[in-house]
Simulated assay, not measured.
Amino acid sequence: METKIILQQDPLWQRLQNFSLDQLNVDFPFSKKLSKEENWTDSFTAKAIEEYKKFVYLCCTLPNGASPSEVVDKVWHMHLIYTRNYWEEFCPDILQRKLHHDPSQGGQKENEKHKTWFNETLKSYREIFQQEPPQDIWKPDQKIPSNNENNSYLRKIALLLTCAFIIYSCSENNNSGLGIFFTIIFSFVIIVLIIKALTKNSESNKNNTETGGDGAFFYTCGSDSSQGDGGSSSYSSSCGGGCGGCGGGD
């Protein structure tokens, strides 16, 4: 209970709670765009945004920073697209420090670091917010498809289509007009499925690049010194490249 009281009295937490990512009097605000882009329900989107705020709070206050879940990271990605809101309002006015999004360089060593930081983030979440991280937002076993999985998917499609084509070629109707028609349709389906599989593989490559190859998220916050609440303290946060988290404030 004491932890919750301290949290509610924290000016940073109050600013985050009062801050809305949705601009007033617009037809297509941030939450609607996020919901559409990720195919989330409105209620799940609202929940994800609230958890994003909690992540940002942890990122700014924990000595070793924090590591986001995949869902939280999607909200962060979208927020970064709103550059004016993020860099001209959110960071200087709400966080009162810079918060950069820097992916790791990948590799087994950094992936192991990520697991440790992520577990520490969940532990700190429980201690600070006095509740369990929602499993639909903070799944510890989130998995991003690997290149091998997508290549396997492509090979299975090719094998199935090859078998079907061989069976069709052996049929007695393959030289008829109807056979030629089905050959054209069959070829078109093959091309569409292969393009779809390759596109999926390309998207996976992009995700793996951003997450270190195994779903690992590493971020650093840039050095910044600005006036804190009431001008009585100076908020600063810095960490070297590859530190894997966002440094805390004073």
Rank of each mutant, 00 (worst) to 15 (best):
L58T: 12
D73P: 03
Y52A: 10
D42C: 00
V72H: 03
E38L: 10
E70M: 07
V72T: 09
P63W: 09
E50F: 00
F55N: 05
E51K: 02
Y57P: 14
C59V: 01
L80Y: 11
D102K: 12
S67V: 10
P68C: 03
L62Q: 15
T41V: 07
W40M: 06
Y82E: 12
V56N: 08
S69C: 14
Y52Q: 10
M78Y: 04
T61L: 09
G65N: 10
K74A: 10
H101G: 04
D73R: 12
K47T: 03
Y52G: 09
F44Q: 07
R97L: 09
Y57D: 13
F55V: 04
S69E: 13
I49G: 01
Y82A: 04
C59G: 15
F90W: 05
P92W: 10
W87R: 13
E89W: 05
S69V: 13
E70C: 02
L80A: 04
S67C: 15
D93H: 11
P63D: 15
E88C: 12
A46C: 00
P92T: 13
I49H: 00
E38I: 00
D102F: 11
K98S: 09
K74C: 08
P68L: 00
F90D: 03
T41W: 03
V56K: 08
R84L: 08
V56S: 12
